[in-house]
Amino acid sequence: MQANNRLFSILVPVISVLLGLIAGAIIMLISGHNPIAGYAALWRGAFGDAYTIGETIRRTTPYILSGLAIAFAFRANLFNIGAEGQVIVGWLAAVWVGLAFDAPMYIHLPLALLAAWVAGALWGFIPGLLKAKLGVHEVIVTIMMNYIALYSTNEIIRSILTNNQTTTEHIPASASLASGYLQSITMFSRMHYGILIALFAAVVMWFLIERTTIGYELKAVGFNPHASRYAGMNVSKNIIWSMVIAGGFGGLAGAMEGLGTYGTITVLASFSNIGFDGIAVALLGANNPFGVIISALLFGALKEGAGEMPTGAGVPTELVDIIIALIIFFVASSYIIRWAITRFKKEGK
C-alpha cells in the first residue's frame, strides 16, 4: 500500500505535466504552429547550450525558495499566499544591507542574507500571529501583506535608497552572490551561488519537517489542532512558527534576485510573480522539498525556454504561459488523474 502511494505521488505530477504538454501541442496545432518545432525550440531555449542551462538554473533558484515558502506552510495546513510579498521585502532588505555599509564578504553577505530572511519572516509572522491569536484567515492577511510589501518597497526605493530614481545602485562585491566561476563555465550567464543556498534550504526544510520535534508538532497541528492541544502542544506558537519559517524561505528567494541575478532592486510596476509561481511549484512538487526542487527546475526551464519559442518556431511566448497554466490545471485536478489510474488498474485486472 505504502509503496503504491509513493508511486502515485510521483506518477500524478508526471502525468499532469505530460497532459499539459499535450494540451499545449494541441493548441499550437490549432493556432497553426508546428508543435514539434515549438517544443524543440523550448528545449533549446532551456537546455540548448551552457548559457541557457546557466540561465535556467538562475531562474530555478528563487523558484525553489518560494516553492519551499509555500510548501512549508502547507505542511502545517496553512496557505501562504504571501510568498510574493515575502520575496519583495526579502529582496529589498538584502539590497539595503548590501548598500548600507562596507564589510568583508564573510560578514557582509551572510548579513544581507540574514536581513532577507528576517524581513520575509516578519512578513510571515504578522499573518501567523493574526491567525493564531484572532483566527483571521491567513489567505486574506497574506494577500494584503503582498500589496503592503509592493508599494512600501517601491516608496523606499524612491525616497530612501535613491533620490527619486527607479533603480538602486549596484551592491558591492562583498554582498554579492555572483560567481565569476559559474559565469565562466556557462558562457557568462547570470547563474550565481544562490542555487547552493536554495538546495541547502530544501535540505533544511526536509530535516526540520521530517526529523525534528518541531516538524512533528507543526504537522500534528496542521492535521489535527485538537489532538495537538490534547497532547500538550502549543497550537498558536506552532502556527506562528510555521508562517515565520515559511516567510524566511520567501525572503531568501528575494535575496537570490537582489544579491544574485540583478544586484539591485528596481521599482516594480507589478508583482514579480516569483512568489505566486511558488504556489504552483509547491503544488506540483507535492509539498515535498525534493519535489519542489524538481518542479522549480521545470518552471525555470519553461520560463527560460519560452524566450526561444517566438524566434525559433514562431510560437508566441503567451502560449508558454498557457502551457504552464494547463500543467497547473492538471496538477490541481490531480484527483481526476488519480481516479483514472485507479479505474484503469481495476479494468486491467
Partner: peptide, 13 residues
C-alpha cells in the same frame, strides 16, 4: 478522551 478521532489521535500520522 471521549472523542478518539478529534482528540486521541492524529489520524494522518
Amino acid at each position: 478522551p471521549q472523542d478518539r478521532h478529534k482528540y486521541g489521535l492524529v489520524l494522518d500520522y
